[in-house]
């Protein structure tokens, strides 16, 4: 087995594993039960999606995908921070008008 074949095979296997992981995370997003649980699952989902894109980069050999993966990680972090701040502002609103 050549190195290229080995790489392609492992990348395919890890794509399958990551796909299953994404599905499991989506179940948690759907069933909740609270907003925090959903935000947490979405955060994990973007990290897994980032790994998925990086695995595609290895499989195709197109390293442009790596930049996409890194920007996806950045986007996931910003989204989680924004959602957490949204929750905080809503808790403060409830404080102001009991």
């Amino acid at each position: 087995m050549t190195a290229a074949e080995l790489l392609s095979l492992t990348a395919t296997i890890s794509l399958v594993i990551l796909g299953i992981a994404m599905l499991i995370a989506i179940i948690r997003v759907v069933i909740g039960p609270t907003l925090s649980d959903r935000i947490l699952a979405l955060d994990l989902l973007t990290v897994i999606a980032m790994g998925f894109v990086a695995a595609i980069a290895i499989r195709t050999g197109l390293m442009l995908y790596l930049d996409i993966a890194i920007s996806l990680a950045l986007l996931g972090f910003l989204a989680t921070v924004a959602l957490a701040r949204y929750m905080l502002s809503r808790i403060k609103d409830e404080d102001d008008q009991p």
Binding site: T10, A21, I24
Partner: peptide, 19 residues
């Protein structure tokens, strides 16, 4: 390749843990 597989497995276990 080993790191790729290990990383995927950790991601999967993280998702299972969240569930």
């Amino acid at each position: 390749c080993i790191l790729l597989l290990l990383g995927s497995c950790f991601a999967l276990l993280g998702a299972v843990g969240v569930l």
